[in-house]
Amino acid sequence: MGKKGKGKGNKLVKMSEEERARYLQMRADMEEETRRRKMKLIALYMKFAGAIQIDCDKTDQIHEDQIHHCCKHPDGHNQIMADCAKEHGFKLPNSNKQSMMDLTAGHAIAGTCFAKCVFDKLNFMKDDNLDMEAVKKSLLEKHSDDPEYVNEMIRAFNHCHGKAEENAAKFMSNSIFKHMTKDFCEPKSAVIMACVIRQFFHNCPSFRWAKTEECENLLQFSRKCTDSIATL
């Protein structure tokens, strides 16, 4: 490994300033193209899963990345989420927004290793399948003070481990996805996590939905534009 790094350094040293600039620009262009192709494939998955974000009327006031403010849910520091994010270079909204529900579905589906790490630490997967007993136990232990939230999450998880998720995970296991990112893991956990996020917000009870103008606009937009928002 040391020799390889040294050789690369020597290569740059031997270049003229113009050659070095061209080389670095070429590397930057390649990395940007890889990122662009990865996002295109993620968008393809979201379409495959029936949850792609599309244009419908005026969307400039729709901020999907802020949707977690609209449906009340427990948040704050979460050590497992924080540890997995650090381990896999996954960016959480901030130190006070570390709930699974603080992510968008698109964000979750892109973090295959992060999601697998979280589900593994929570013991949510057993023999490559979602262990609903473990899910229920974890939710009841952590959120005993909010039984309605527990029931909503259990319903979401129950919905999200069927044939559709199995097929989506197989689709994302295609080798082309693995070459698009340095940090790619078996995607079933990410598929389920993204689905749970969508289900939670899609079925958010009216008493939990914030009555702000932005959230009301988002709710009306999602109802009018079916499958227009990835999270919903």
Rank of each mutant, 00 (worst) to 15 (best):
C113D: 02
I54T: 07
V118S: 02
V118I: 04
M125Q: 04
Q66A: 14
M100F: 14
M26D: 07
D102W: 01
L92Q: 09
I42K: 05
L92I: 12
P147A: 08
R36F: 00
K47Q: 10
P147F: 12
A51I: 03
M125S: 05
A28F: 11
R22E: 15
Q66T: 11
H73D: 10
F48D: 11
D127I: 06
C70K: 03
G50L: 00
D29K: 10
L24R: 10
N94R: 12
T104A: 01
A21S: 10
D120Y: 02
H69M: 12
D146L: 06
N151G: 10
D65A: 10
A82R: 12
G106N: 02
K137S: 15
E64T: 05
Y149D: 08
T34H: 02
S99Q: 06
H69L: 08
A21P: 06
C113T: 01
E18P: 10
R27S: 07
E152Y: 07
L139H: 02
H73C: 08
K137T: 13
M125Y: 04
K40R: 05
M26V: 06
R37W: 05
M101K: 07
L103T: 07
E133N: 15
A82D: 10
C113K: 03
D145E: 15
N96W: 13
D131F: 08
R22G: 12
E133K: 12
A51V: 03
P147L: 07
T59Q: 13
R37D: 05
M153W: 02
S144C: 08
I67L: 09
N151M: 12
M30A: 09
D131Q: 08
E133D: 15
G50R: 01
I42L: 06
K91G: 05
L24Y: 07
I62F: 14
L92D: 08
T104W: 01
E32P: 04
T112Y: 00
A110F: 04
D131R: 06
K121A: 08
A43E: 00
R20M: 08
K116A: 01
D57I: 12
D65I: 15
G89H: 00
Q61L: 12
H107S: 07
K121Q: 12
M100A: 14
A51G: 07
A108D: 01
D102N: 04
M81T: 14
N151A: 14
A43Y: 00
F119R: 05
K47E: 09
D65P: 11
G89M: 00
M125D: 03
K116H: 01
A156Y: 03
